[in-house]
Design a protein around this nucleic acid. Sequence first.
DNA 1: CGACTACGTCAAGTCCACTTGATGTCAAGC
DNA 2: GCTTGACATCAAGTGGACTTGACGTAGTCG
Lengths: 149, 149
Amino acid sequence: MPQVPEDVVWLKPGQIAERAGVAVSTLHYYESMGLIRSRRTSGNRREYRRDTLRVLAFIRASQRVGISLDRIKGALDRLPEEGLPTARDWARISREWRDDLNERIEHLTALRDRFSLCIGCGCLSLKSCPYSNPDDILGADGQGALRFP
Amino acid sequence: MPQVPEDVVWLKPGQIAERAGVAVSTLHYYESMGLIRSRRTSGNRREYRRDTLRVLAFIRASQRVGISLDRIKGALDRLPEEGLPTARDWARISREWRDDLNERIEHLTALRDRFSLCIGCGCLSLKSCPYSNPDDILGADGQGALRFP
DNA sequence: CGACTACGTCAAGTCCACTTGATGTCAAGC
DNA sequence: GCTTGACATCAAGTGGACTTGACGTAGTCG
């Protein structure tokens, strides 16, 4: 039962920004995108829940591996509105992301290995190598989307 | 001695564009960036050397793994102006790229593993997990650049 | 009380990698 | 010879992820 909002501490924009390593303007931007939320003080100042730091860390980590804010928002939207996200919530997202990561890792590894091969044979400059002929590369792959790897 | 321009065939923009799977406008753009080159016919039409296809494949492959056009240009600029690039030329670039790829793969793998861990412990929502505390995440890593992984 | 800093809003600007549009030209087919 | 399509140039637009600027307010310190 971690649904109980344990110790909800509210932090000011500057504090959040500094600890999360983002600009205050970025917080505004994320808020306008619906990625994070805030409440207001009587003087109209924003206040962020402490766990916003976690969300921001999650956003940065996801972005870092090339996931768009849109997709990140999609995942965050599926978290519960009220109460803290449960282990199950994060697990679902993590699994989703992990599959994505696995796919990317596979692509990168394949490409790296191809390049490694090329180091041995210099294929990109010689006709003899199967990878050197752009037509073959084109033909090897039905669609126009995935060209080289 | 592959320096001898074997069979230099010149292709029209439309042909190059189709075979490489890019728009003609992209060719213009790349040319303006100095990534590819062309000569002109008497009627001011562009003509591309056949091996431009190889360069384009290389650009796409590199881009695909997140390398910017700027960096790609940097690599291409180090190829010889005249004659075909040698095996050694491509090898150098490939090695450079491969190191880059290895780094990215490491990041992704680390992130995935962290997420996998989270699936087990639900850390992102519980105080007990070392990864859950954003302050620790911040503290674990001197700079502001690398936040989560 | 006054100064200063952090914060508020909103529009506009930036960077990258292109694409779109306007307008004019070259070349091949009938 | 004329139409059609591919091509030329150049300016401007697009989209994602922010940042910057202009301008006004809130709260804190001496």
